[in-house]
Design a protein around this nucleic acid. Structure first.
Length: 276
DNA sequence: ACTATGTCCTGCGAGC
DNA sequence: TGCTCGCAGGACATAG
């Protein structure tokens, strides 16, 4: 499922392949749509707009749009895409077959199409004008936060460290896979109360979280479920998972069995020997 | 203010 | 083989 590294991969791919292209027209599917803004608002913002930037904020892809009306550049807007669990943004030839669960098609001036496909419909699409409230962009970026600020996030929190890592209001972009992987690398059990971690443990967690996210980005993300990048390519980081999805399998460090437990309704994987 | 839990949604795999 | 059932989980709503 798309977490920070996967969303970063998609955003980079989109920037590489679609920057400067113009959206000529937009088709949005019927049925309950995975939309935050209305279909009308989205179509109005996208049609005739040039893609002038793509960035990632947490798990959101932000597509910067620019329109000119009567030669005058109008105020910029942003198309915000959250992939949910199973969403993908794909750039395909216009004659490519339409995949099941395609919810939006943006026809590009270059002749290609940008399509949003999401079987489980946990994904969300929205548009906003520059200057609109951006209260959705809360939380700190895990790859930018200092060790000191990172440690401060967990002060006084009784919740398990695993849950705290998943809380997007604290850190944005960390999901179930990378929370488990970072905790294993930092040798911390997922159920430990966040506030009770030692300074050394928090320092280690900060270091390993950043490292695992960077390695995953370099590997094009983890293709669990149906994650693929804009060209439909899978990532490779799933082969380097040490705990996620490896319940019962031997720990790569100590050979003991990886355990699976449920924390706040989320599956959590760890090594009882290596993690304290 | 914080924490815990239920809900959404569909595909897939286990089990019979 | 063909069916049912439970699980997967990010964000949000709701309850405590």
């Amino acid at each position: 499922m798309p977490e920070l590294p996967e969303v970063e991969t998609v955003a980079r791919g989109l920037a590489q392949r679609a920057l400067g292209d113009v959206i000529e027209s937009v088709w949005i599917g019927e049925k309950p749509q995975p939309l935050k803004s209305s279909a009308r608002e989205i179509a109005d913002a996208l049609e005739g707009a040039k893609i002038v930037g793509v960035e990632r904020i947490g798990k959101h892809i932000v597509v910067e749009l620019s329109k000119s009306q009567n030669g005058q550049p109008s105020a910029g807007s942003q198309w915000i895409v959250h992939l949910g669990m199973t969403g993908s943004l794909l750039i395909v030839p216009a004659d490519a077959e339409m995949a099941k669960h395609t919810h939006l098609i943006a026809r590009l001036q270059s002749g290609r199409e940008l399509r949003f496909v999401d079987p489980r419909r946990f994904g969300r699409l929205a548009v906003r004008q520059i200057g609109d409230d951006n209260t959705w962009a809360v939380g700190r970026e895990p790859l930018e936060i200092s060790t000191h600020d990172f440690a401060a996030l967990f002060r006084g929190r009784k919740t398990p460290i695993k849950s705290a890592l998943l809380n997007q209001k604290l850190l944005r972009g960390v999901g179930n896979i990378y929370a488990d992987e970072a905790l294993h690398r930092a040798r911390i059990r997922p159920r430990r109360r966040a506030a009770l971690l030692t300074r050394a443990e928090l320092k280690s967690l900060h270091k390993h979280l950043q490292a695992v996210l960077r390695q995953a980005i370099a590997a094009g993300g983890s293709s669990i479920s149906d994650y693929v990048d804009v060209e439909g390519e899978s990532g490779n980081f799933q082969f380097r998972h040490r705990v996620y999805g490896r319940a019962g399998k031997p720990c790569r460090k100590c050979k003991g069995a990886i355990k699976r437990i449920v924390i706040a309704g989320r599956s959590s994987h760890y090594c009882p020997h290596c993690q304290k």
